[in-house]
Design a protein around this nucleic acid. Structure first.
Ligand SMILES: [Mn+2]
Ligand SMILES: [Mn+2]
Ligand SMILES: [Zn+2]
Ligand SMILES: [Zn+2]
Lengths: 130, 130
DNA sequence: ATAATAATAGTAACCATTACTAATAGATAG
DNA sequence: CTATCTATTAGTAATGGTTACTATTATTAT
C-alpha cells in the first residue's frame, strides 16, 4: 500500500527529535553524519509528506528556509532576529485569543478560516543584554 | 541626497492604487502597458524600498509570490484558497487582541516582539456557494 | 556647462524547493 | 523461493521568485 516506513523516514523523524526546529538542510546534514548517502530531495519529500499528514509542523519563514517541528500540536513561534533562536509559545489563553481572531475574521470578511500562518520576530532577553 | 522621486517610482505607486494587493509581476505587467521599457528589477527594488520605508505593506505568502498593499496601516489579510481574492480586516477590537498576543508572547518567551507576519486562508462566501 | 551620483534597463546569478529518472528495496503472488 | 510489482530512493536537472551586477541614463549640485 501507500505507506512504507523507510529507514530514511525513520532517520528524519529522529533528526527532528534531536534538533530544535531545524531546516531541511539541517536535517540533511545531521543524518549525513551517520548515513552519508541520504539525499536532500528525500529529506524534502518526507518532511513535506509528514507536514501534509499532520505528523509534524512546517514553520514558513518568508525570507529564510522553512523550519520543521516534531511537535505537531498547533502553537506559535517567536524568532530572535539577533541569534536566530526559535521560541515556542502555547497556552489555553492563547488558543482562546486565536479562536476569537478566527471568529472576527470570519464575520468581517465572510471567509471561513481554515489555515493560519503566524510568525513573530523580535530580540530575545539574552541578546538584549549585549 | 538618497531620495530622487523617479517617474518609475511614481508609476509603481499608481499601479498599487489601481490594483488590488498585486504581486511585483502584476505591477510590472500593469506599467508595461503604458511604459513597455520598465524593468522588473526596478519594480522589485522600488517595492522593497517602499516597504522598508513603511510607505507600503509587504504581504508575504510562503509558496506564492509576495503581494504589496498601498494601505500601509497595519491590518490583516485573508486569502481565499479557491479564487485567490485577498480580503482586508481591520478594527480597534482586532488591534486590542493583537496587542494582547504581543504581551503574552513577550511574557512567556522573553522576546520583545518587533514584527508580526500573519496570513489567514480559507474559502470565501462566494466560492462556498459553488 | 561640468561634475557627482541616484536610479534604471537588461541580464546574470542565487537559492530554496520541486521535478524527473534510473536504480533499489521491500512487499505480493504463485 | 522466484518472479513480479511498486513505493521509495539517490542523484541531478529544472523552476521560479528574488537579488545582484553593470553599463547607461537622468537628476541634482557646483
Ligand atoms: Mn515549536
Ligand atoms: Mn490590505
Ligand atoms: Zn537572541
Ligand atoms: Zn473565493
Amino acid at each position: 500500500m501507500s505507506k512504507r516506513y523507510s529507514a530514511q523516514k525513520m532517520m528524519i523523524e529522529n533528526a527532528l527529535k534531536q534538533l530544535d526546529h531545524p531546516t531541511a538542510s539541517e536535517v540533511y546534514e545531521y543524518i549525513r553524519e551517520s548515513y552519508p548517502n541520504i539525499s536532500l530531495g528525500t529529506v524534502y519529500r518526507n518532511l513535506g509528506l509528514m507536514a501534509e499528514a499532520g505528523e509534524i509542523l512546517r514553520i514558513p519563514s518568508g525570507d529564510s528556509p522553512d523550519r520543521f517541528d516534531i511537535n505537531a500540536h498547533e502553537h506559535l513561534h517567536v524568532t530572535c532576529t539577533k541569534c536566530g533562536k526559535v521560541f515556542d509559545a502555547e497556552s489555553e489563553k492563547l488558543e482562546d485569543v486565536l479562536k476569537k481572531i478566527d471568529r472576527f475574521l470570519q464575520e468581517s470578511t465572510g471567509v471561513y478560516i481554515e489555515e493560519r500562518t503566524m510568525l513573530f520576530q523580535g530580540v530575545c532577553s539574552n541578546c538584549r543584554k549585549q
